[in-house]
Write a protein that binds this DNA or RNA. Structure first.
Lengths: 200, 200, 200, 200
DNA sequence: AATGAATGAGGCTTCATTCAT
DNA sequence: TATGAATGAAGCCTCATTCAT
């Protein structure tokens, strides 16, 4: 009696997950060119099913993006437990870049920047980074003129850098993360030419 | 599309420029979604005219990209005359970021990465950056483990960083360029975790 | 045709048939100039629907051609039952020419010559003609130096002949089929200047 | 003094010939797909020049077709001198088929069927074939129920036959011309099922 | 006459989305 | 909810033809 409803529901939930995973893979491989049809095929469902879960392609993208940010949020929260605040911040940037290198979905971010779910999770991430940054400041591991918003914005930098070098070793971003992290040291920091931006 | 004065044959070159400018604007505003039809409309010519100048949309993109890189090349070459090699390098990165901030066409680069004209001008830019870097090394203004390819790759970083903050002041990139440039100082540089990449 | 319950599937099948019929008509009337848009309009469906049935214009053409050959194959197979092998061969050529006169699609053949479905059905037709020819040989109704491939190639000849006479009576081809059939008699046949071609 | 005018005129005449030759080649190689631009390029002139000689692509096609028929007319007229009227007719059909095999332009005929120049030269050809046929009738080399129009229509048959066999030896048409010619013998001719058509 | 840039209609195809089952 | 056929707007590109030089 209840079971058919339940099994329908869990099938639906499973399809949702399949679709999100397929969309992530497809977007990572094909970029924005990935089509709804391809995603549906990869998830093993019909094209129409995509639209019964996500009213719009944009909505699907937003869900993928939210998923993606959620992983970073979880990472940040885990690292708040860490003893060494400076190392925690470096580790956070490392995990973030590593994840981004494995599946670059940055091009999706701007598309779903307005989406309310994305806004919420993004704010959460920003807040968590705030905690990481505060602790790093407290133990003097980070130049004092750098804010949570700065760190949030710098997340993607190392991976983006190597995008322009086709055939680069996949973890070359570690080199540029090191350079940037050197720029974040308190020692000998030169005054920054512009004030830190406000978080919207 | 009748205008009081029909285009003159000697204006063919002018149409080419109009098209390149229109394409640059349109791509900067609409991203890769910019259509040939929109570009033609913006340039004030018929759709078919685009294809009499550029056989393919890709070819048009390559021309835009090449144009864009050429400006950087010219800047680098001008700065080779400069007395202070460290300041010259910073200025180069500043000009490059400034230009890129005005019109972000990075997403076009990968599309025309193979184009022979683009390859040529890109190699030229890399070589010019090589000269700037060598002079900076010679006067100790740059950490010794950083190469021309590193600098080439870091060009876009500051601008990309602020892409994720809608409504940011347009020259906020200067803040992140300063951070990165601090990371490029020789003083107290930590060893880099990966070797410098080869230029293809 | 089918019950309302199955109507989705059978509507789709019906659309496929409508499209094939419309394509046949349109190609017969306009030649290769017939556009997908015109075909869709004639079938009463949207342009996009054509491509949900046939991935490509070429694929649509191949389906039309295969349909067309299939009728000839069925005719040949029916005539294998006939008692008089010579009359059967003449009848086959008559039916083939008659059909071809109603809708000349020969110009489509070369376009889809490579299509695997077309190749298969074409080989089937050739084999069936082989049986007709063999029986005709056995009862001395056909000059012995003529092969199945010869007959296959001669199918279109009578109709093509009258193509160059606009306003000709529509069954004028019967006159030229008679002349050619006279040339196929065993009596007084002059030696043929070239060997029979191989079937690919 | 007078020479510039003269040389301009003869340049124009030469361009006309170049264009006709280029068009013939291009149409033979590419079929109806041959574009005006390709023809101009092959002739080594600008696209616009094509239209200063032929107001329309159709007009160019008509000129090519007329040229083509003119060769057959000349052949027929030469063969009227021949002693053996039967052999002359066979030779005419052989030359016609050979020429057509080298450059198949049949698909152009229907396009320019109405063109007045083409109509005139076509009538001339028909008349010349009439003389050949009459002489063949007089010496009993041709079945009496066959007319000049029949022969005119049969010209293309042998070549068309082999069109459906890709990779056939290029002179395989001789085999089918022989078969058809056997069908034209007076001996044992069966009555033809339709009256000979009228020439328009 | 010759040139070739410009035109714009029209061709094929893709794809997000809708809808009847 | 799932399905997948149908839709139609939009994209890129081709090409005969026009026109100013």
């Amino acid at each position: 009696m209840a079971s058919p409803t339940r099994s329908l529901r869990s099938d639906a939930a499973r399809n949702r997950e399949l679709l999100l995973a397929a969309a992530e893979d497809e977007f990572a491989e094909r970029g924005i060119e990935a089509s709804v049809a391809d995603i549906a095929r990869r998830a093993g469902v019909a094209k129409g099913t995509v639209f019964s879960h996500f009213a719009t392609k944009e909505e699907l993208i937003a869900a993928v993006v939210a998923n993606h940010i959620a992983v970073l949020t979880a990472t940040a929260e885990r690292l708040l437990e860490s003893a060494d605040a400076g190392a925690a911040l470096l580790e956070f940037l490392t995990v973030a870049a590593d994840r981004r290198q494995q599946r670059d979905l940055t091009f999706l971010m701007s598309i779903s920047a307005e989406n309310s779910q994305v806004v919420r999770i993004r704010n959460q991430l920003h807040a968590d980074i705030g905690s990481l940054v505060q602790r790093a400041h407290e133990c003097g591991a980070l130049r004092p003129d750098v804010t949570a918003t700065d760190i949030y914005l710098l997340i993607c930098a190392p991976v983006h850098v190597i995008e322009n070098l086709p055939g680069a070793p996949s973890d070359l971003w570690r080199r540029y993360l090191a350079i940037i992290f050197d720029g974040l040291r308190p020692e000998g920091a030169s005054p920054l030419p512009r004030p830190a931006p406000n978080w919207p």
